[in-house]
Nucleic acid binder design. Structure first.
Lengths: 259, 259
DNA sequence: GAAACACTACGGTCTTGGCCGAAGTATTCG
DNA sequence: CGAATACTTCGGCCAAGACCGTAGTGTTTC
C-alpha cells in the first residue's frame, strides 16, 4: 500500500496554515502574485516564497512569470475539488461545534467557488432550476433538460462560451449550506453572466459576493428568488452582520437530495 | 477568510504518513481495530492510539467499541472522497514522474474503493455500461436508463439492497487509470454481487482484488470484458508482476469523457 | 545608470509534534 | 481469582520544518 505516503505528502502541503490560506485565496480561480499571497497568508515574503515553491513543485499551483512578478493559480480543478472536500469535512467535523460557526456571514450568503457561485444564493438557484425541471440533479450528477436550455436562452446566459473539454454540469457540495449548488460549465456560465450584468460584485480581496440592487431584481424575476437584499456591509469581524439571517426562500427546499 | 486554518487542520491530520496509511487502509469500507491499524501504519500501538484519537476527535473516523477492541471506520463518504481526490492530485503531481509509477500492479488491475470497485476492471465495466447505454455518464454525474435496469435484473445484480439515503450512481475518478469508474449505490451493488458470486476475492490485508476463473467467465459473458486473467500473485514488491500488462479490452474506450 | 521593486537563497532559532519505553486501565478467558 | 489481551496515558527524546533577518538576482522605472 504505497498510496498512503503519497497522499500524506500532498495533504501535508495543504496542512500548513499559511499554505492553506494561499490555496483558499486562489479558490475563486483568480491568479495572484507572490506578494499578495504572502499578505493573505500572513507571513513574510521570504517564507511565502518557500511555500509557493513547494506548492508549485508538487503540482498544486500553476505558475506564470510576467515581468518581475510571478502569478500563481490553482493547477487544476482537481485541486479545487480537494479543497472543497476538505471544507466539507472540516465543517462536518466534531458535531458539538458545528453550529458555533458564525463568522463570515457575507461568505455564507454568496461567494465564488473556483469559477462558479456558492452560498445561500447559489443553493437557491440550484433549487429553483431543479424544481422547474430545468436541470436533473442527482446529488452527484447533473443534466440539462431541453426546457432548461430554452430557459437559459431566455435569461441570456450563454452556455456556449465554454471549453469543450470541461464537465458540463455537476453539483458541488456547499460547505456552508451543506447542500449542493451548481458547478461545471453551467455554474460557470451563470457566474459569468452575473458578473457581466452586474448582478453581483466581488467584495474586495475576498471570495465573498454582494448582490447588487439590479441583482436582487433579476434574481427575483429570472429565478424567483426573493428576500435577498444586498448585504452592503464588509465582511470581516463585524459581528452585527452575523445576525442578519437573510431569508432566501428556496421555493421548494425538499426538491433536492431527497434520496 | 477563516476557512484556511480550518482546512489546514484537517489536511494536517491526513498529512502524517502513519495516519494517511491508516485512512488508506480504511478506504475499502472495512472496519479495523486499533492494533490492525497500528500494524498497517507501521508504528507502535501507543503511537497509533494517539493518532486514532486525533482522527476520531476531528470527525474523520467513526468508532465502535466492542469488548476490549475498538473498531474504526471512515466517518463518512465525504472523507473517502477527500482521500480519493488527494490520490488524484498526488498522481497528477509533478509531470516528470507521472509514469514511473509501477508498483502495485495488482492494485491497478482491480481493487476496492470504499465500497465499490476500482482499477482497470472497474473502468472497463463503466465503459461497457456506457457504451450499451445502460448508464448515462457525464464525467461527474450518472443516471441509470430503463435498459440498464433490465440489464442488471438479468445479470442478477440487486439494486434494491441499498440505503435510501445514498447517491444512486456517480462516477469516481480512478486514480490509477485517470478515468472514471462507477461509485454510488450502483457501484456498491456491483461489488456486492461480485463478492457474493465469487467473481473476485480480496487479497489478504489489501484493497487489491483478484478476479477468479468464475469471475473471468462472468465478466466476459455479462459485461463483454475479455483478457482479464486472474492475477494469481501477491501484491507487494514482486517486480515480475509489474510487467504483465493485462489487456482489458475497453470495448469502446472513447465512449466516456468525450465532451 | 541608479533606485525601487518583486522575488529568491541561505543560515540560524525555535516550536511543533511524532515516536517509543514504561506504566496504568478496561475486558476477556481459563 | 489471576493471567493474557487490547488499548491508553505519561514523559522524555529527537528531528522536521516554519519563521525571519540578511543578502542576494532579475526586472522595471525614472
Amino acid at each position: 500500500m504505497d498510496t498512503g505516503p503519497k497522499i500524506a505528502q500532498v495533504a501535508a502541503l495543504i496542512g500548513d496554515p499559511a499554505r492553506a490560506n494561499m490555496l483558499s485565496a486562489l479558490m475563486d480561480g483568480r491568479t495572484l502574485t507572490a506578494s499578495e499571497l504572502a499578505y493573505v497568508s500572513g507571513v513574510a515574503p521570504q517564507t511565502a516564497s518557500g511555500h509557493l515553491a513547494k506548492l508549485s513543485d508538487a503540482g498544486l499551483l500553476g505558475l506564470e512569470k510576467r515581468g518581475r512578478r510571478r502569478y500563481f493559480r490553482l493547477a487544476s480543478p482537481a485541486v479545487a475539488r480537494v479543497l472543497e472536500g476538505l471544507m466539507v469535512v472540516a465543517q462536518e467535523g466534531p458535531a458539538r461545534q458545528r453550529n458555533l460557526w458564525r463568522g463570515g456571514e457575507t461568505l455564507r450568503h454568496a461567494r465564488t467557488c473556483y469559477d462558479h457561485m456558492a452560498g445561500r444564493i447559489a443553493v437557491a438557484i440550484a433549487d429553483r432550476l431543479v424544481q422547474q425541471s430545468f436541470i436533473l440533479l442527482d446529488e452527484d450528477g447533473g443534466q440539462l433538460t431541453d426546457a432548461g436550455r430554452s430557459f437559459f436562452d431566455e435569461v441570456g446566459v450563454d452556455l456556449r462560451l465554454t471549453s469543450k473539454r470541461r464537465v458540463f454540469c455537476r453539483p458541488c457540495l456547499d460547505w456552508s449550506e451543506r447542500r449542493p449548488h451548481l458547478a461545471g460549465a453551467v455554474g460557470a456560465a451563470i457566474l459569468r453572466h452575473a458578473f457581466e450584468h452586474d448582478w453581483v460584485e466581488h467584495v474586495r480581496d475576498s471570495r465573498a459576493l454582494v448582490v447588487t440592487p439590479a441583482g436582487v431584481r433579476e434574481l427575483a424575476t429570472a429565478f424567483g428568488i426573493r428576500g435577498a437584499p444586498p448585504t452592503d456591509g464588509r465582511d470581516g469581524p463585524v459581528a452585527s452582520l452575523s445576525r442578519s439571517r437573510v431569508t432566501v426562500i428556496p421555493v421548494e427546499s425538499a426538491s433536492l437530495g431527497r434520496r
